[in-house]
Design a protein around this nucleic acid. Sequence first.
DNA 1: GTAATTTATGTCAGTCGATGACAGATCGCA
DNA 2: TGCGATCTGTCATCGACTGACATAAATTAC
Lengths: 202, 202
Amino acid sequence: MGLRELKKERTRLAILDAAIDLFLEQGYESTTVEQIAGAVEISPRTFFRYFTSKDHLVLWFHDHGEEIMLETLRSRPSDEPPFTTLMHAVRAVLNDMRDSTSADAQRFLKLRRLLEDHPHLIGLSVARGADTERRLAELIAARRGTDPDEDQLCHLIVAYAVATMRVGFECPRRDSTVEEVIARMSETIALAERSLRPGWDL
Amino acid sequence: MGLRELKKERTRLAILDAAIDLFLEQGYESTTVEQIAGAVEISPRTFFRYFTSKDHLVLWFHDHGEEIMLETLRSRPSDEPPFTTLMHAVRAVLNDMRDSTSADAQRFLKLRRLLEDHPHLIGLSVARGADTERRLAELIAARRGTDPDEDQLCHLIVAYAVATMRVGFECPRRDSTVEEVIARMSETIALAERSLRPGWDL
DNA sequence: GTAATTTATGTCAGTCGATGACAGATCGCA
DNA sequence: TGCGATCTGTCATCGACTGACATAAATTAC
């Protein structure tokens, strides 16, 4: 990897970290892009070259997670029940988190705290989830050999999977460790599997 | 009702209708608040006194629907399985739509078309759904006599209910009638009930 | 019916997020 | 070293949104 891309990635993370800390200190709304840019000594214009919007910052880990999920989907046998596959994908995201740098984990936990403090941001994250859902539904339909426009079940499967994941992320405790989030998510997945009729997603 | 409130409601609907038509004509992003305000001959400032944001316009029917759902929840026997109750609430929204003025139905259908044309707006609507979900989860927890912070199942129930509703709203056909949307939704509800284990929500 | 009170509206100025255009700086490579 | 690609800052601009203040309308009290 060239020195250029290395530097770019470093700036990207610097912006992200500075922004998260500012958000946690003084709130999301009252932190301006100008401040964030100032903290890492770049021009506001450059900020928007790294993140398409201020909101985009909060969705950093979302993008990361989606990538891992899509990867997992591709690697799973196509005759596995779709919901099971999706739950594996969710677990893959968590495992990646467990194995990640302490810096990455730190970012994730801080973002979680940020979301708790600002319910408006949850909406934002969910909105991005709707986008992800569309892509996932298409993949699942392909696996099932159906047309996503006709096959309602593929949408339902994905919708329930994403819903399960979302419920799992909402931890009651404000300062939770990555391990705690993982444990909580496992509980939720188990609960979901107990709630659904065996073979419903075939 | 005083003349004041009457006039207010009329302006509110005038703004909404003008906006929707402009959106459909020239796209959501490229329609400015100034244009909308101009179309109904009010100042842009006044626009923001009727709708807190441009986005809020699109969520008009969402607010309407949420109100009906909450009402239905209150009127249902508290020993009914929660998911069943929620599905009744969804049906209540549809029934209200069927009985509504042609103007209201028209608005609803136009908004649906708008959402299809602008995927970004779907995210917005879903984001508002996250808000609704929180309120619903609290109600369901109260019915179940549990603490919403501890009881994961109440969140899962609501999340699945909302997910079901969302899947039902996505019709493949661009120009659908209210009846078609209702039929589609009924199918989806039936599918959901077939997918969930009996008694899962007790 | 008029006066007093409340509420709705318009105007103005200003903040903030976001984008396009251009110029200068930086990096990778021949 | 020098060329081309890419990155960055500056400037100008738009559009969403808000607060402050003055005016106009409707509601209420008398």
